[in-house]
Nucleic acid binder design. Structure first.
Length: 128
RNA sequence: UUACCGGGUGGCGCGAUCGCGCGGUAUGGCGCCGAAAGGUAUUACCGUGAGGAAAGUCCGGGCUUCAUAGGGGAGGAUAACGGAUAACGUCCGCCGGGGGCGACCCCAGGGAAAGUGCAACAGAGAUAUACCGCCGCCGAAAGGCGGUAAGGGUGGAAAGGCGAGGUAAGAGCUCACCGGAAUCCGCGGUAACGCGGGUUCCCUGUAAACCCUAUCCGAAGCAACGCCUUCGGGAGAGCGGAGCGAUCCGCUACGGUUCCCGCCGGAAUCCCGAUGGCGGCAGAAGGCGUACGCCUUCAAGCCGUUUGGCAACAAACGGCGCAGAUAGAUGACCGCGGUGCCGAAAGGCACACAGAACCCGGCUUAUAAACCCGGUAACGUU
RNA sequence: GGCCCGUUGGUCAAGAGGUUAAGACACCGCCCUUUCACGGCAGUAACGGGAGUUCGAUUCUCCCACGGGUCA
């Protein structure tokens, strides 16, 4: 499952400032409607709307190895949530790792991420 | 056996399922771009996919840009000698010094006898000195003048140590021995240097203080650079326009062995002159760090054998030929096995340090468990 | 990714090879005041870590750790 990544700093700032937030023990999820979704849809060869994802792992959490691994685990959890649920599209999603996430397995993060998406209205709770 | 010294290997393995980056092959009906050819998303399969330190950025190169090759200054680096190397501050060998019973380890290891500076406190005195003491003279005495570095005490350091001669008392003042420095000769060594002998001298420490000597270094770095956009682009010629006019403005074309102007260039972070090149521009300002190039499979490459060399290393032959991302690709989970710890067992827990970003050679730092090789000392046994 | 700086009491900071390491704010105690503030007096408290050079390092050199700046 492909997804587009956020790399511009101003989008992160915007998500932190204006986005809806939900925090689980090992993650913090920020959600903002993507104003550029329409434009990106035209640029996309498949002409479908996508969510743009930004992953944040602070240097405080660890070195490069730890941070890379944490990002992989979060990415894996996101993939599984998307595969198993109907997730709405057209949003900017910023997922920040908290220090507890480094010691988690991806199985542990799937329910957390799903819960966060449900609370933020990305996923309807009935679809299991 | 115990304690230690030096060097090296190695960086958990195998197999399922679901996923990721790159390359290739096929697919590309539906989707997207295109008039079409075609391209592309997609999907499937195959191949491939982090390190010994990828790290710190401490040195040295390659490569790229600065027009070309230079000179000088400033600045920086290094420092016994010989070699290795593309080069090095690295490596090897060796010399000297220091440490250890020893295997062995450590040393920014030139010059303080070219000059300048500094040496707090203590001490009489720190590169020159007379506080106590000793000796001589003057004096009734107190004390004064002079000589003296043997003795006292201070200090990291007090004029090399010790003995004898010498003297009023003393002093390398003289002599013997010892120690050190410079230099000459002989022998050994490629050399540093060592050994023996002669001559002269004995002068504090500090150069990771300034400095002197020798050698080396142009600067900046893939966020470089290429790239993209805008501005600028003389005179003279033609056309048009404005103005009474000098003249100005706009457009067009030509030209580089004319003139003129200019750029490189106030040469590149300081200075200097030289050669020359280039252009109708050069250049300036910006753009976004984006798209693409650089960018990554032919390399100072890795492995093995042989030869040369004490060694670092070199040569020849054979084989292999190997990541290329751009918020940055290797993860999740399961099974079997390995090693260690805990436990009576079942079993449980742990398996380090750590992530390429143009590429190499080193250094330094971080590293769990395990294994191998060589050696030393002590004790024991034969 | 490259290139440069910095680290001194709780905070901001000077110093520069040498006695006991300035100063300001803060803190604590005493005095003043009916009390607080202001003022006065006195006090506590520091050279990021490890090696080296030196008689002696906070200062000089090297290696780490941490914190910043800057470049397309």
């Amino acid at each position: 499952m492909k997804f587009k990544a956020i790399c511009e700093n101003h989008l992160f700032s915007k998500a932190y400032a204006k986005g809806k937030r939900f925090v689980t023990p090992s993650l913090a999820v920020y959600l903002l409607p993507d104003y550029a979704a329409e434009r990106l849809q035209k640029e996309n060869p498949m002409k479908i709307k996508v969510n743009r994802i930004g992953l944040t792992v602070s240097k405080k959490i660890g070195g490069a190895v730890v941070r890379n691994r944490t990002k992989r685990i979060i990415r894996e959890a996101y993939r599984r949530v998307v595969r198993e649920n109907a997730v709405k599209v057209g949003f900017l999603i910023v997922i920040a790792a908290r220090d507890r996430a480094t010691r988690k397995k991806s199985d542990d993060l799937v329910p957390e991420l799903k819960l966060a998406f449900e609370k933020l209205g990305l996923v309807t709770p009935c679809t299991k």
